[in-house]
Design a protein around this nucleic acid. Structure first.
Lengths: 333, 333
DNA sequence: TTGTACGCGTTATCAT
DNA sequence: ATGATAACGCGTACAA
């Protein structure tokens, strides 16, 4: 009772192994009827190809390494969903490397580990330039690489247009009336996790507000931490002139504002309007107006960019842009 | 200029491929001098064996799957260090499956990737019984499995003795003098991430305090969240009779106490003594007395348990116990 | 102790 | 369109 092989399938279907392989890999040149019987045999035997044999015969590893920071969960869950979906369709395996700290990055990329066995590399949220240009001992990965949720010159990338997201928030906030305030996320000091998303959201927001002929009456900064977020919320509501409209550049910050507003008995939509960013799972339940990001689509597209390279596509780097979408809920009206 | 193979090494060293393979796998029966020359050739050619060929020839995958919750970073970083170290020594690859959410677990266990790839499974911090016995559609992994940082009957496991840790804290706290207080971590509702560590720490602590003829004057509960931790610290210090000794069952909670104590101008060691649990990287810098856990050793040992199974060890399930160690710093004296 | 030859399960290259 | 068959790189039984 061993695991069925391609031989077993071929015998069962009354064809050669070559034909089975062709069916498996969509090599077009196979008659519809034979394809049917092969697929039938595969189903009956509950056959799944041995990936290792596949890798050694094909010369490729059929594996993609995904370098993933471990910060906020929700975002990366969705990102992985998109990536894995696309790669699975193309019969690629995904090896996940959670970058829990900096030393792991260097170890992972240090030649002999899995990261270098892979046919391709997906890097999430990292500043390639910083990583590979600084005087680190990290040597660039030689295979095809795609950046996701980050933008850089010279590399394929799929990124979220946070400038646009900020602008949408700014336009919407400007027409709500009331004094304008904003809370930004303090950029991490650790270079590895440096991100420009919050800077981008800010510049978009400020630009839109200015174009609307308004001014931001106060700006605040918080670390990405519930305690600090609450403290900032307290300070903001102490100082703010009501009615106020606050753009919080992350839902975590917006949530703290909702909490503090509730503690003070402020009425949302009248005394205070809040706009978040991320559309976390709880945002709907709490009625938070926020910017929803098509994260899965971004992951899926990033995978497609890599897959086309793997199947031989040459040409200049491509950048795919994704747009956050405003979801209006009760916190702003 | 292709990647060197075992053939190249054999030719270079003037031996047969079998000998090279024997050297690679420590198959004892090889003369020291030939071993040397083979290792020399390997070094000169910068040869690394093709893992996929190895897997297909040997019938094994030489890969271990590690199911890892993504919660607090520091702990799992160290755990992974220990695991990866051991597996690397034994020439096994480690595939990490970050369990960002529940649906991923089912997908991982259901899909052929994990089943195919791995010779063994390491599960961190999960309650096996709960996972496999509840009416879920999760079917148990058939290969050898080891639990790490969790204890269950019928499975090999390496676990931290949190009861002992609590007891040590209790004994130490009891002899410090002053009123005793404790802060516990609220257990997660999500069954997947249910953990008994905080219950264990509590029962050990209470037992030790009782044995010392003392009583705990107040118990508090906080979620694992800096904001809530601070709120609880505020409440505790509002109500506490000074001088007080507080056992915080996680450094996160202890840190909030230090913050609040500082804000109130309390003098640590005189008005307030704090004992944490975890020995986070910042604990030393802030002088926090806390319980250090040999996490790397636990991971290493868990890997060894699995490796012995892989090399054919039969016999009843084994449990390896690890002991937290009290690190006394200025916050308690 | 060591070399040779076979097999692992798949893909790719030929003929047909 | 399809069936043989040769790789792919390594582990291992067997012979020497």
């Amino acid at each position: 009772m061993h695991k069925p092989t391609i031989q077993d399938v071929a015998r069962r279907a009354g064809v050669g192994v070559g034909t089975v392989s062709r069916v498996l890999n969509n090599h077009a040149a196979v008659r519809a009827s034979t394809r049917e019987s092969v697929l039938g045999a595969i189903a009956e035997l509950n056959y799944t190809p041995n990936p290792h044999a596949r890798r050694i015969a094909g010369g490729k590893s059929y594996t993609i390494s995904v370098l993933l920071p471990v910060v906020t969960t929700e975002f990366y869950v969705r990102l992985l969903d998109g990536l894995e979906h696309a790669f699975q369709e193309a019969r690629y395996d995904v090896a996940i490397f959670p970058l829990l700290d900096r030393s792991r990055l260097e170890r992972y990329l240090g030649s002999h580990t899995l990261a270098y066995q892979a046919d391709g590399l997906v890097m999430a949220t990292y500043n390639l330039t910083q990583m590979f240009q600084q005087g680190t001992n990290i040597r660039p990965y030689s295979g095809p690489t795609v950046l996701v949720d980050a933008f850089a010159e010279g590399v394929d990338c799929a990124y979220m247009d946070n400038v646009l997201g900020g602008r949408v928030a700014g336009e919407y906030a400007s027409q709500l009336g009331g004094q304008l305030y904003a809370v930004w996320v303090e950029t991490e000091l650790d270079q590895l996790f440096t991100t420009r998303v919050f800077d981008d959201r800010r510049s978009g927001f400020m630009e839109a507000v200015e174009q609307a002929g308004q001014t931001v009456r106060g700006e605040y900064t918080s670390s990405f931490d519930s305690l600090n977020a609450r403290m900032v919320a307290v300070q903001l509501l102490d100082e703010a002139v009501l009615p106020a409209t606050v753009f919080a550049s992350a839902d975590l910050l917006a949530g703290a504002l909702l909490d503090e507003a509730q503690a003070r008995g402020l009425q949302l939509g009248r005394d205070l309007r809040v706009i978040g960013f991320d559309d976390q799972p709880w945002a709907q339940g709490r009625g938070l107006t926020t910017l929803h990001q098509p994260v899965e689509a971004m992951g899926y597209e990033a995978a497609q960019l890599l897959l086309t390279r793997l199947s031989g596509h040459e040409g200049p780097p491509r950048a795919r842009r994704f747009e956050p979408r405003l979801v209006v809920r009760s916190s702003s009206q």
